[in-house]
Design a binder for these strands. Structure first.
Lengths: 111, 111
DNA sequence: TCTATATTTCGATGATACTGGAAATATCGA
DNA sequence: TCGATATTTCCAGTATCATCGAAATATAGA
């Protein structure tokens, strides 16, 4: 992941509504959720949600597919892991440090 | 970590300069770096850097300590891991999914 | 106390982002 | 083809953020 991609992803997540949408989709898994279902769950105007979904999509954090009249959104788990790896990369100069950070790095290299 | 804290942290990281500063401090480890040293490394006006360091500090991602005339900044690794855990929390409904995400979650719960 | 060093605060300007109703677009079923 | 459903695009008003030189503050050493 390049720095510009990370900035786009972080900016996309740095918003109350988009963060809750993204986490909802992370927890939904590959199955995803229709835009309308998300709007209803989060009690959000359709146009506002559409704006935020587009933002997350542009940042590469979620993907869209059509199923009949509905557009289904789901988290891009590869992108999510890439972002996490970018943030924790070479933590503490590569020396052993916090357990979570250390293994996040190992995983990133392994993938 | 609460959603508001995550939003503050993400907004703080969603900037070209702050992201590079944070990653520099992550890689520097607990030892940290003086503000002046960072400004020189990144060729950034002192006032601009100060603005960004204050932003990262307010977001809880870095901490400050004084050493003589210098202010030393270092990454807050607990906060960093908390943010990663918040993003990947309950990924795919808790079912086994991408390896990195799965173990990021295990680690978060273990810490 | 005086001077040099290190860093922050101030301030004005320019740029970018969020909101949500209304209208437009796309798809489906009959 | 027509009406209903699902979602997006448009728009304008408001608010928030980034920049960086100059001035202010804090610390150290002589």
């Amino acid at each position: 992941m390049k720095a510009d991609d990370a900035i786009s992803a972080l900016a996309a997540l740095a918003n109350e509504h988009r963060l809750v949408v993204f986490r909802l989709l992370v927890q939904a898994g590959p199955e995803g959720r229709a835009a309308g279902a998300i709007a209803e769950m989060l009690d959000m105007p359709a146009s506002s949600l559409s704006f935020h979904l587009a933002h997350l999509t542009r940042a590469g954090l979620i993907v869209q597919r059509r199923e009949s009249r509905s557009l289904i959104y789901s988290a891009d788990f590869v992108a999510m892991n890439g972002l996490v790896g970018f943030l924790t990369e070479n933590c503490c100069g590569g020396a052993s440090c916090a357990p979570a950070t250390q293994s996040a790095q190992k995983k990133r290299k392994a993938s």
